[in-house]
């Protein structure tokens, strides 16, 4: 067992962090959200640096590290879909935005309005649907990522990607979600801790109250666990049970982190001037995606105790 990054991984992560610190962050996320835009500049920079092809050229764990860091930096981009999920299904990584769609889903889809490629989970198979970027109807979103509607007909069309591809898509999608949730939870918590260290009440920093510390500590423990569960699943190539455990844990953690960070930040956390909402609102949409924690939990049961399973 080894929880340390090796030299190459550390080097990748360092340069990812540098790039993200220059080109992403809450301020940029707020500006992009106001316009309902996707961060095309960031996409270009990540591609030019070779980070969007980490999964095929280095490995899924490295791509997973990128996805988690991008979520921490509030990147308004389909990093999870493009850098982690698509490479698991397609021979070539598309250089257009990728949206992940469930054939039976009724709700809005992240990034759909900008997508050039839809990967549709339709029962046993996944389908590849090419669309003209910008052709799908955008949906007003208060959750950081731009949303769009994918019409029923489109969700049933496209080229089937072969046996087992449906299940493969769901596994990597769950993994991407777990990573994004864990990254956004980490950032929401960090934003809150920084604020509570300086905010005073009854003559002392709010962060010095034991009860507040306990609540933050509980969040930190769960957030750390989410990250390790997700990275471990990535390391093993996204096996069904591990990704379902990681996603279920990350979704439940997100719910808790959302409640506690907002409750402890007070009124300022509800304004769009404070950074918390950049991460917290994203947590809210991510934790509901793909059926939310109930569906992830059912996937665990199905993987572990399904008829015929070992």
């Amino acid at each position: 067992m080894d929880f340390e990054l090796d030299g190459e991984q550390q080097a990748i992560l360092d340069s990812v962090d540098v790039l993200l610190s220059l080109r992403a962050g809450p301020e940029r996320a707020i500006a992009l959200a106001a316009k309902g835009e996707l961060d095309h500049d960031l996409a270009r920079a990540l591609r030019e640096a070779g980070f969007l092809s980490l999964a095929t050229e280095v490995g899924p764990l490295e791509a997973a590290l990128l996805v988690e860091r991008a979520a921490r930096a509030a990147a308004v981009l389909d990093v999870g879909a493009r850098a982690l999920v698509a490479p698991a299904l397609l021979r070539e990584v598309p250089d257009v935005p990728v949206a992940l769609v469930h054939a039976d889903g009724r709700g809005p889809v992240r990034h759909a309005a900008f997508a050039g490629v839809l990967l549709v989970a339709d029962g046993a198979v996944a389908r590849l649907v090419r669309v003209e970027p910008g052709s799908l109807a955008p949906v007003r979103s208060g959750y950081g990522d731009p949303l769009g509607f994918v019409p029923e007909a489109l969700r049933r069309s496209g080229e089937a990607l072969g046996a087992g591809s449906g299940e493969r898509l769901l596994r990597w999608w769950r993994l991407a979600l777990a990573l994004e949730l864990s990254g956004a939870s980490t950032a929401a918590l960090a934003t809150t801790v920084a604020y509570l260290k300086q905010r005073r009440q009854f003559g002392r920093a709010i962060g010095s109250f034991q009860a507040v510390q306990h609540r933050l500590a509980r969040c930190a423990i769960r957030t750390e666990a989410s990250r390790w569960l997700a990275l471990e699943a990535a390391h093993h190539g996204a096996p069904g049970e591990r990704v379902a455990v990681a996603a279920a844990h990350a979704a439940d953690t997100a719910a808790q982190v959302f409640r506690e960070t907002h409750q402890l930040s007070g009124a300022i956390g509800f304004t769009r001037e404070h950074d918390l909402h950049v991460f917290s609102m994203r947590l809210q949409s991510l934790r509901l995606e793909l059926g939310g924690s109930t569906a992830h939990a059912r996937a665990i049961t199905a993987e572990r105790w399904a008829e015929g399973a070992p």
Binding site: P108, R140, L288
Partner: peptide, 24 residues
């Protein structure tokens, strides 16, 4: 409800956004 509840005109989304404020 899942993601459909996130739409701005969905009642659950309003209840949720509104009730967040109530404990503060």
């Amino acid at each position: 409800e899942g993601p459909a509840a996130l739409l701005e005109d969905a009642r659950p989304a309003l209840l949720w956004r509104q009730s967040m404020w109530e404990t503060v």
